[in-house]
Design a protein around this nucleic acid. Structure first.
Lengths: 348, 348
DNA sequence: CTGAAAGCGCTTACAG
DNA sequence: CTGAAAGCGCTTACAG
């Protein structure tokens, strides 16, 4: 049924060895022999079997990408950045989402043995660290957004704290004082760091003590932002501003505000985090902290490729921190900027 | 370095055959022998090599997913649906985006030989069909949104035409007459079918003849919708409504309208297609055609699993058409519905 | 320039 | 209940 290298060899009247050599261009082959082999490949419609190749070369040219979820633009952008860089390095991407609990994560980690050359893992759950540490020693692995204290595996981390600080600086500079936090999942490191930035920014202000009353829980989804928005809208007095720990929640929150007749930013300011592609198209356009999510993925992949190249899993232990950038739009009451078209680079 | 089944066998004082039997539970093994083997596995930290296993069993438990792009919520949802169904069937997902030209697609199709048991391919470019037809005969393959006339491979297709018709019926019922089309990529089948729905809906109306002047070209991106929106806003008289061929463009278009001081739906109505998660959170919430993108992915995966199960690539040639559902929100001037919270099912 | 042999890490008849 | 042998489809020294 399926044609193998031996069939080609037989057809061309040579050995499999020689066929292998012309396929991989790994050794000189007589011109005429090469021609015959090429013809045989063509006429038999032969395509080398990647799996068999991997077994002997010990390279799958595939990387595993394990994510907590696949929902929303954040992951979409992340995968896009990873895929782009992967194909540039001639690698395939095996992706898997929703590893809610460590047991599931471990099962996947095991299942991937012999199928991938390395992995990119995003595991917000702190309980996963011992597991990752163990596997990360056996196979090249790059962590996304891990806790620097919990693991010394190579990792790319967003500067969540710095980003939150700069957003808070911006809000305070605009005169907002009572700034509510729309927080993310409790065990999520990104969410925690962003919350910490909010908290410490408020520490020096008169609100400092009172701030705890202005914390609203969300789970990074639009829906949770919508729900929190409804609660916030019912507050009196209204806070001056809401700092949402991600854009998806800000989007939901904005929608709730609108339904409750609140104008943004006139009645209340609203800021997000991530700068997902849709943020600039909101009404009003959303002030956010740009993370360049695709770049995050691209860097993780680049790092992984170099790790896999050296063969060592611990050769390069530096932790890379991705700078963020405050993107001021209309949702917080700052002087309106002219709408800036995204460049092609930003879209792609 | 890496531990194999032979190491385990040696450690337990048995043959590799027996070890294999306890791992796969494929034949009875003496209780005590089993225990020794389990201990050896534990102490050596042995994990079976998936690649080697695949070679002999001829099953990789992996499916390849080839998409034209990975940008935006549509693909995010699609992959999520595929991944969910894949893991439920104990399969891995190898994903790859941006196969702009057929040559690139072919390279990927070849590279996947021996790495996957089947493929889900979305190739809007009509030129790819001969290629797909050839490969689709060698390996189980399900097409996404392919042209029914171009290939008889199994395919899941969105009812783009029907969806567009029902949207147009809705717009016409609301009294809109001059309805502009914000079209998608020229060679994209979804875009074409949606355009056809628009065109045929207008055929019976007074506008019929004039309608060509109301076609605006886009490429499915927010940015192209934004650009078209600016052009439409400059029109006089303004159209009554704009039917955007997807939500992403509608989002961009909406943003442009706002900047030009146009109110939606008071000054002009706006409708989209796809009902991406963000649509309901727009201001105003976007009337759209729900496609249940995740379900599209899930069905493709389900179909592929059954194809792979039967082993035949052509056993099940029925083409499945996915019904759409008109989702009326505020952007077209219909009586405002109460905001409906998405159910958990819809979010996950 | 070419080929026979060994082997990557497994599983599967076959025989006992 | 257990093992020796063959083999999945390749590549890689080794020898010529």
């Amino acid at each position: 049924m399926t044609v193998s290298i031996r069939d080609v060899a037989r057809h061309a009247g040579v050995s499999a060895t020689t066929v292998s050599r012309v396929i991989n261009d790994s050794a000189p082959v007589a011109k005429d022999t090469r021609r015959r082999i090429l013809e045989a490949i063509e006429s038999l419609n032969y395509v080398p079997h990647g799996g068999a190749r991997s077994l002997i070369t010990r390279k799958t040219h595939t990387v595993g990408v394990l994510l907590p979820d696949l929902y929303g633009e954040f992951f979409s952008e992340l995968i896009r950045g990873i895929d782009l860089t992967a194909r540039r390095n001639r690698h395939h991407v095996l992706v898997s989402g929703s590893h809610s609990d460590p047991a599931e994560l471990e099962a996947m980690l095991r299942a991937l043995r012999g199928r991938v050359d390395g992995m990119i893992v995003m595991a917000p759950d702190v309980n996963a660290y011992p597991l990752l540490d163990r596997f990360g020693r056996a196979v090249p692995m790059v962590l996304l957004d891990s806790d620097p204290d919990a693991s010394d595996l190579p990792a790319i981390t967003i500067d969540n704290f710095g980003g939150a600080r700069s957003m808070m600086r911006h809000l305070l500079a605009l005169g907002h004082r009572r700034i509510a936090l729309l927080g993310g999942p409790e065990h999520n490191r990104d969410a925690r760091e962003r919350a910490r930035g909010w908290r410490e920014s408020l520490a020096g202000t008169p609100l400092g003590a009172e701030s705890a009353a202005l914390v609203f829980a969300g789970d990074f989804s639009e829906l949770s932002g919508y729900a929190a928005g409804a609660r916030i809208a019912a507050l009196q007095p209204l806070p001056d501003a809401v700092f949402a720990a991600n854009d998806a929640m800000a989007v939901g929150c904005l929608s709730a505000f609108r339904e409750h007749g609140l104008r943004v930013p006139e009645d209340i300011a609203l800021a997000g985090f991530d700068d997902i592609p849709i943020a600039r198209y909101m009404n009003p356009p959303l002030t956010s902290v740009r993370v360049s999510i695709a770049d995050l993925g691209a860097r993780a992949m680049t790092r992984l490729v170099s790790l896999m190249g050296t063969g060592s899993t611990a050769a390069d232990w530096r932790r890379e921190t991705l700078a963020t950038e405050l993107v001021v739009r209309a949702s917080c009451g700052a002087p309106t900027q002219r709408f800036r078209n995204p460049t092609r680079e930003e879209r792609r």
